[in-house]
Design a protein around this nucleic acid. Structure first.
Lengths: 245, 245
DNA sequence: TTTCCGATTGTTGTATACAAAACTGCCGTG
DNA sequence: CACGGCAGTTTTGTATACAACAATCGGAAA
């Protein structure tokens, strides 16, 4: 499982431990839930009850709660006091802001990556592209979306900017939720040519090209979404639905 | 207490609740600790034992742990497995990356703010400047640093970019730790003229000016730090301190 | 029939108890 | 005297018990 191994790798160098220390147990739950959310295995808005998750991962609610809190900080989950955890449902406004943020950050990051990229980096990106391709053609759409996000993260990693990489990772994760909610044509998610062009520009060490390709790629992505301004969600159903049928 | 009220305000629109719900109790501990860290009341590297904090806030370790985990996600605290929580000590490398990230994000944010600013916003910024001024002249240096960060956040808020605002907030928090660790001249923290210039540019709705002032302001800040490349921290004391005296 | 109220049930919030790991200091050995 | 290892102590990790809150359902009153 390619996504699983990728997650496992991320597990080492992440959060709750100094290097080479076994990760805290809640972190496994966190990773598992995160993957399920990012691959669209769980729908936005789904309730995530602590007891149930505890059974699934055969642990106490304590660990589940830690994992949920971490996911909440990632904005992949919403915690409502006394009501529990739900897979986040970014509003259209949030969605626009996320893509505006990406438009500000990622082109520059791509340019930095183009400056810093080594042949090994290029190799890695191309392998990644291949994975995406396979996932897409095998109809594993959720995973394809996830991989597509990880591609953007990979570029940030090449730029050797850990802080910005974290931001990109966060933005891509949230973008995955946005795609789940607002993607226009659910089927036929055309394999974006932009990713290939991006790798080429980075391989050629052309920062300016990379910047521009990334920039228009993000515009493309955005144009595939339905983020029109209308009822971003009827503010108060109570007021509107008085006397229904 | 100006900082306290600011924190309280932040408390409403933040994390663990849908609008107008009373915040979870751990969140108060989180806010209190965060303020202590950001105002340099606690030194980077300080151990934060759960029991002790539990006594201080007269709550169980459960709540303390939640707060610490949240702070860890903010990178203001480091959690080491089976060893506990410590106030984070960003390395020089991290520090540089944080300021590189700021240099990429904040000038654009300032430009957006200059486009969007209303007279009320300007008013707010000027009041903020005044607070900074007072804190500085009363010798409350820690709070001055904190307020100076909040000024940057306020600009982001004016730009109406919630996502970017969060990023700026995070970067400023971490910058506060960096200042605590690597600030060159501890005394005589010259009151930066840049903030005033920034407000003027924003008041004049001059995006380009705002962008450039912010850009050079960040360079200035960076130049006040000692982030030289040398032993960013002796990698392994064991290797270096063999046979001391 | 509709609406409001209260009991019931389920889920989350918090405290506490216990297990496991790390730190400390002591003591024996080289 | 230095080193290494073995308790004892302290602190964290995890599970569980109990309290508090919210959601639901049913029944009584309008």
């Amino acid at each position: 499982m390619t996504t699983a191994s990728a997650s496992l790798a991320a597990l080492d160098d992440f959060r709750p431990d100094s290097p080479n220390r076994p990760a805290a147990r809640w972190y496994f739950i966190y990773v598992a839930l995160k993957e399920a959310i990012l691959t669209h295995a769980i729908e936005p808005g789904t309730k995530l009850p602590e007891d149930e998750l505890g059974e699934i991962y055969s642990s106490s609610r304590t660990l589940v709660r830690s994992a949920l809190q971490a996911l909440a900080h990632d904005r992949l989950v919403t915690l409502e006091l006394n009501r529990g955890a739900f897979v986040a449902k970014p509003t259209r406004l949030e969605a626009r802001e996320i893509f505006e943020a990406r438009a500000i950050i990622e082109p520059t990051v791509a340019a930095l990556a183009a400056q810093a990229a080594t042949p090994a980096d290029i190799e890695r990106l191309r392998r990644h592209l291949e994975e995406e391709h396979v996932a897409l053609h095998e109809g594993r759409n959720g995973e394809a979306v996830d991989l597509s996000g990880k591609f953007h993260v990979a570029i940030a990693e090449i730029a050797h900017q850990t802080v910005l990489t974290e931001f990109v990772r966060s933005l891509c994760s949230r973008s995955s939720l946005i795609v789940a909610l607002y993607w226009r044509r659910r089927d036929a998610m055309c394999e974006s040519h932009a990713h290939h062009a991006l790798v080429d520009a980075i391989a050629a060490n052309s920062p300016q090209d990379a910047r521009e390709i990334m920039s228009s790629h993000l515009v493309d992505l955005l144009s595939g979404l339905d983020l029109s301004d209308r009822p971003p969600e009827p503010k108060k159903l109570t007021d509107i639905l008085r006397r229904p049928a």
